[in-house]
Design a binder for these strands. Sequence first.
RNA 1: GCCGCGUUCGUCUAGGGGUCUAGGACGCCGGCCUCUCACGCCGGUAACACGGGUUCAAAUCCCGUACGCGGUACCA
Length: 492
Amino acid sequence: MSVRVRFAPSPTGYLHIGGLRTALYNYLFARRNGGTLVLRIEDTDRARFVADAESDILESLRWSGIDVDEGPELGGPFGPYRQSERSALYRDAAEQLIASGHAYYAFDTPEALDAMRNRLASQGSSSPRYDAMTRMEMTNSLTLDANEVSARLSAGDPHVVRLKVNSGQDITFTDAIRGQVTFRSDEVDDQILLKSDGLPTYHLANVVDDHHMEITHVIRGEEWLSSTPKHILLYRYFGWAPPEMAHLPLIFSPSGGKLSKRKSEIEGIPVFVREYRQIGYEADALVNYLAFLGWNPGDDRELFSKEELISEFSLERVGSSGVQFSIDKLKWYNEQHLRSLPDTELVTRVQRDLVKRGIETDEKYLTRVLSVMTDRISLAADLASQARYFFEDPRGYDEAGVKKRWKGDSAKLLSAYAGRLASIEPFDAATAETALRDLADEQKVGAGRIIHPVRLALSGVTFGPGLFELIEVLGRETCLRRIRAAVDTLGH
RNA sequence: GCCGCGUUCGUCUAGGGGUCUAGGACGCCGGCCUCUCACGCCGGUAACACGGGUUCAAAUCCCGUACGCGGUACCA
């Protein structure tokens, strides 16, 4: 049987970084095994529905290079792929369970449920729940007589459908990552399958869809591990074979706990994929990093292309303990991927960012700039934010730098050097360097006495590429203009 | 509280009874290079949660404890 997996996000918000990791593992597993990746939108919660969440999920997956084979956009033989469009399926399934005695109608009001839970809690119950022990005290088709039930149903009384979980049995399943896991059925409550609005809960919809879509492996976050026994029971009651289960370790914030919007601001870790795209991370770098958040190839290699990940990925090598997200490590991956990019690709990336900032430049010039800057940036966007002087004259000079480097003789030395730059041939790094060192010798000063103030004049700052490379890239006109401006401004 | 899952350097991890005085990567520290800042290279810091047990031998197997995380909704 060919592998079919799914990524099934709920459109209650933008695609989360943890969601992307889940999508990625499903994608890698599918591609590795020549299988199919299904995208299913689980929009059964009307209260938390966010209108533009689905398009964000689609766009984020596309940006990340995770292409799905079936989904709401491109269709497929098992559609529709939005749960809101499959309601009839779930209702039929629920009725089937009622008919076979594995589910029942319940008419309890929210108040009645609260009262029941409070009462049990006050009696010292360790876990008040709607289950085999308590359901006989509630208002449902197991305690009401048949006439009353049909009367209520035809009167349109609000009701839900609950799973009837028998007590006293062990529910065991094998998780591909954790091995055998067992729950006692006494710990599983009579889960609501169909809500009073007629829509299914996750548990029902998930099992019904995974079966109808012929999903062979369920790869999802560990937060679902505890509800898996409910799903196993559902498969059993429907008479369906459950898929393989694999629960991925959760991703945490560096301070522990889950990554939240709030923490993201404090700790500088974005939670939404779209933010990584906006900041300018390389999709391949993010994917590479995310792949390693819970998986590794078993040796020392760390830099992987998407294709390499596909050919090496396996669930056997996925770890079982939660992992902390590290923005430093991601930054490192981004640097590595950036530097491995072909020149033309890098130029394209950086130019896109420059255009956004209203900086115009041509590719030829940018290629030369990058030849001296690639090793100095972590993100494509760093060029504009950290080395704007390649595109416009400095608007000021770093104060501490001036204090440290601009001496009494700087103006005189720089003017003299400008004089040499005006006529050197060819105008390149080597010649500029010779000219500077000759001048320093003649003036009986160390070369640094000229180099540092010239850098300040050209860039406004005290760091950056080698001065002579900088001079060559900027060109004669610009260098002369900037040196004159600095002499005028900083004086002496 | 109850149930489940987890626990190797600060972080991501290798390790699946002897080859481990525990390896790699990020970070951090130091050095080299050098006109600055990076890159690169070299070196350093730092871990088997704790307690029992099994065994000739345990980071590796078992039990317990602690801690962390998840679940415990008409949310997914």
